[in-house]
């Protein structure tokens, strides 16, 4: 059994047969097929906190979707959220920029602050929140407009009309898309490939100079090559932005993120709800997890 994965295929870990390993005799540190991103330095303890979640629970109507999440997200880092589907990763992510406001049954308890400002205090304008905290979605969602207008639309409505051409170019360069599209800026964005579309969506987000980028499984609809290019891009982006990424792909989290939050489903008490099991440096999560459930998950014995 090969323990070193050389390719960047996002699926190889899941494909490997782990059943051979007897859970009882397996070493505490499971044989990892995961390269932990080596580019990152040890986290300095005094990192600026961007998001601070304290005991956050989310309800959809009567149903408790996620319970008691507490975590801090740090500036200019990539934070990953992993876990089986349905455990509330998207829910928590969308709570960070008030995207859940459009769900009428949505209710959040606990405290959720952004640079010390309560995101859910009265008087907070969700539009102002989203202007600072951008989002990239699971499926690329370019507007049915030209490539140029996809990028230029938001700056225009936000009143950033000066030097729009430069702004568009800068955003496209920032998303590593400029060279591919510079000759067809006026053509429809829908003609781009899936990976290009997703980078366009990233470009669209950074064109308005946000503070944070939230990415909800941004590569799940993409092929491995496009996935690799987006992962590379994220490494560049973290110099300027704080990134939070939800991914179902553990290797991706291991490759790109400094910090990883592992969510799971808790079925105790007859109620299915998502919980945050463990939150730590990515290396710790993947090599010395403190919780048995995390270990089971990252070694592929679960999910």
């Amino acid at each position: 059994m090969s323990n070193k994965t050389q390719t960047r295929s996002p699926y190889s870990v899941m494909d490997e047969p782990h059943s051979e390993i007897d859970a009882a005799t397996a070493p505490v540190v499971a044989p990892l097929a995961i390269e932990v991103a080596d580019s990152k330095d040890e986290t300095p303890p005094s990192r600026e906190v961007v998001f601070d979640l304290r005991d956050v629970s989310v309800y959809y109507g009567q149903a408790l979707a996620v319970a008691g999440v507490s975590l801090e997200i740090h500036r200019n880092q990539i934070t990953a959220m992993i876990g089986p589907s349905g455990c509330g990763k998207t829910t928590i992510l969308r709570s960070l920029n008030r995207m859940n406001d459009s769900v009428s049954s949505f209710r959040l308890t606990g405290s959720c602050t952004y640079h010390g400002n309560d995101l859910y205090a009265s008087g907070v304008d969700a539009v102002e929140v989203r202007r600072r905290i951008g989002m990239v979605f699971q499926r690329p969602n370019p507007f049915p407009k030209s490539i140029y207008d996809n990028i230029g639309w938001a700056p225009r409505i936000l009143g950033m009309r000066d030097n729009l051409d430069e702004r568009v170019e800068k955003a496209l360069r920032g998303a590593a898309l400029w060279d591919e599209v510079k000759d067809r800026l006026k053509t429809s964005a829908l003609g781009l490939s899936g990976g290009q579309q997703q980078r366009l969506c990233i470009a669209r987000s950074i064109a308005i100079e946000p503070d944070v980028l939230l990415l909800d499984e941004p590569c799940s609809a993409l092929d491995p090559i496009s996935t690799a290019s987006i992962e590379d891009l994220m490494q560049d982006l973290k110099n300027d932005y704080t990134l939070v990424i939800v991914t179902h792909n553990m290797q991706q989290a291991a490759r790109v993120a400094e910090r990883t939050a592992f969510f799971s489903l808790d079925v105790s008490g007859g109620q299915r709800k998502g919980i945050l099991v463990e939150y730590d440096d990515t290396a710790t999560i993947f090599t010395r997890p403190a919780d048995k459930r995390t270990e089971d998950y990252v070694t592929g014995r679960f999910g």
Binding site: M99, G134, F137, N141, W153
Partner: peptide, 24 residues
């Protein structure tokens, strides 16, 4: 997804409607 895409860029609902719904 289209509506969310517009809102996530800091558009108001009306701006979303004008920019994404009415135009398309």
């Amino acid at each position: 997804e289209l509506k969310d895409g517009a809102l996530a860029l800091g558009a108001t609902r009306w701006e979303m409607v004008r920019g994404v719904v009415l135009s398309s």
